[in-house]
């Protein structure tokens, strides 16, 4: 997994609430058995007409947002299906950070496993960043994970919370399977105990 420490990039505004994983990556693209190549179909039904031409007024099709690295979105982003293809598609497109007032649980976890930082902020901070983001290519935002700050285009600073363990993994690009396997002794001990207590499992 690619490390995430500091990120400077254009923020794109998507004020819609309840953007679900079917919108992020429609199921017709889930038939792949790879993890890559989903970026071109990110937000497919909102981004393209049926004939494959772009829908000009969709935010990521606008010239000033084509290289966006950050999304600022409405409440409850990533609800719906558990498909990890959603963060894979965001990552493949180049999005490394999503900012919202709330995220669906599974999506939120999936982001961290893929080097994407989801940031939860109070409504007024999201409103402020949404406003910044609507300034197009002038909306350059810097996210500093180490210090847990977001710097807006006009120098204002917003701080954010993140789970210490998730932050550690993201900063160092750690594979958590490796970390867990280091605790194999605890898992062995648990299994031995459980086999006594609940042998029917």
């Amino acid at each position: 997994m690619e490390k995430f420490d500091k990120l400077t990039g254009i923020a794109a505004p998507m004020p819609l609430v309840n953007i679900d994983t079917d919108m992020i990556i429609p199921k017709v693209f889930l038939k792949s058995i790879q993890r890559t190549g989903f970026g071109k179909n990110l937000f497919d039904e909102m981004r393209y007409n049926r004939d494959g031409t772009e829908i000009a007024d969709f935010v990521l099709n606008k010239p000033q947002y084509r290289d966006a690295k950050i999304l600022v979105t409405g409440d409850n982003f990533g609800c719906g299906s558990s498909r990890e293809h959603a963060p894979w598609a965001l990552l493949d497109f180049g999005i490394r950070c999503v900012i919202s007032t709330s995220f669906a649980d599974i999506f939120y976890n999936n982001c961290f496993k893929n080097g994407i930082l989801p940031i939860v902020l109070p409504q007024e901070d999201v409103d402020k960043l949404m406003d910044d983001a609507s300034r197009g290519s002038n909306a350059v935002v810097t996210i500093d994970l180490e210090n847990q700050t977001i710097q807006g285009p006009d120098g204002g600073e917003i701080t954010f919370e993140v789970d210490a363990f998730k932050k550690h993994c993201l900063l160092n690009g750690l594979d958590d399977i490796g970390l867990t396997l280091d605790k194999a002794a605890s898992i062995d001990a648990f299994e031995a105990r459980a086999a006594q207590e609940r042998p029917w499992v």
């Binding site: 558990s82 999936n110 893929n114 867990t180 898992i187 299994e191």
Partner: peptide, 21 residues
């Protein structure tokens, strides 16, 4: 019982555990 993403599927396959709060 809850849903997990593919990275977590791999994690459970390899370790039979899930990192949770």
């Amino acid at each position: 019982a809850h849903g997990i993403g593919t990275s977590e599927v791999e994690h459970v396959l390899a370790t039979q555990t899930l990192i949770q709060k």
